[in-house]
């Protein structure tokens, strides 16, 4: 590979590292955008079948071109900036929503050595970047200078900060037992232990010893991405569409892209942190990216399933769940894991 690229590298000279990184970024973002587009179709189809409907089936064979039609429609629509809004921040809102959603992908490992930036503090970086996602929503809601968007952004601020805490504690458990902040190392640490030697690798992944954390992380992930049943930020029955009320065309599409990119991010992170990343579930099957894709798709299906199944939480119930249930549970479990690791019963020696 390196030898093959050498002539091209010579062509660019000293700027080659930057160009090569750009190529890698495109190689990650382009499939991601494709995945986002088809996730919207999958969502409509899955929910359609769950509600005994057919879902979109008009554009292209079996409705497969529907996301492209949607994209073209959104691209061609006019962007309306309300006259009473704060124009600069109004445009900045959607940009700040999508930027962290894409930046977070820089440290996600897709397979052995297949990662854009293999940083030591990868997990921490992810936490920091995802904690900035809320700004897009808050700024959009405030800059719109309208009641419903403002209410939506207030809800977003409170909700996302609350669930970040429990998410952080869940991640502390993971890094306690893998003794590393590097995502690749975290995956490696799951590929060992008694069950792994027996060929039942899927039992040695983090989800089993950290089952409560796995559940908390998954639910917090749904809340963090503002997906149903935690979508009070959008809450079309209460605040119409929250921060997105005043947005149209591509500015609206950016929020949409960010939401779905975040969904995929949370799913892939859950797979990496709790479900062994690219490791195969059985000893006799080879590891590879396809396992990560499969696990991510499974978790994404859970996201859609939850949306089709549960009614929306009321706002105070969301806050109760975050502060009075998840945070105590995670705090206690951090303690339990720490004691477990130091006890003779530790399975992570």
């Amino acid at each position: 590979m390196q030898a093959m690229l050498q002539p091209v590298a010579d062509l660019f000279g000293p700027s080659w590292p930057a160009v090569w990184t750009l190529i890698k970024i495109v190689a990650i973002v382009a499939p991601l955008m494709g995945a986002v587009a088809y996730l919207t179709l999958a969502e409509r189809k899955v929910i359609g079948y769950m509600q005994v409907r057919i879902g979109p089936n008009r554009v292209g064979p079996m409705g497969l071109l529907q996301p492209i039609a949607d994209g073209v429609k959104l691209l061609l629509k006019e962007i309306i900036v309300p006259s009473g809004s704060n124009k600069g921040l109004f445009i900045l809102g959607p940009i700040l929503a999508i930027a962290p959603a894409l930046a977070a992908w820089s440290v996600v490992p897709f397979s052995e050595g297949l990662v854009l930036a293999n940083v030591n503090a990868g997990l921490l970086l992810l936490l920091a970047i995802t904690s900035m996602e809320v700004y897009g929503v808050i700024i959009a809601g405030w800059a719109s200078n309208s009641k419903y968007p403002f209410l939506g952004s207030m809800r977003a601020a409170a909700q996302m900060v609350s669930y970040e805490v429990s998410m952080g504690f869940a991640l502390i458990c993971v890094l306690l037992i893998s003794a590393s902040l590097n995502l690749t190392d975290i995956v490696h640490s799951q590929g060992q232990g008694r069950f792994h030697e027996m060929g039942l690798s899927f039992l040695s992944w983090n989800w089993l010893p950290l089952l409560p954390m796995f559940v908390v992380y998954l639910i917090s992930g749904i809340a963090e991405t503002n997906r149903a049943p935690f979508d009070v930020v959008e809450g079309e029955a209460e605040v119409v569409a929250g921060h997105m009320v005043e947005y149209s065309g591509m500015t609206f599409a950016l929020f949409f892209l960010a939401e779905y990119a975040n969904m995929i991010l949370v799913s892939i992170l859950t797979s990496v942190l709790f479900l062994g990343g690219w490791l195969s579930p059985f000893g006799f099957l080879p590891d590879g990216f396809h396992w990560l894709a499969l696990k991510t798709a499974l978790i994404l299906f859970v996201f859609l399933w939850a949306r089709a199944t549960f009614p929306r939480f009321r706002y105070d119930q969301i806050m109760r769940l975050g502060w009075k249930v998840f945070i105590p549970v995670t705090l206690i479990w951090v303690f339990v894991v720490a004691v477990w690791m130091m006890s003779p019963l530790s399975i992570w020696k």
Binding site: A121, L125, A128, I138, M154, V161
Partner: peptide, 18 residues
């Protein structure tokens, strides 16, 4: 550096803006 961003940008300033 990352903690600064996580704590101050991700949490403190969000509540501040709130």
């Amino acid at each position: 550096a990352i903690t600064l961003v996580m704590v101050y940008v991700g949490a403190v300033m969000v509540l501040f803006l709130f």
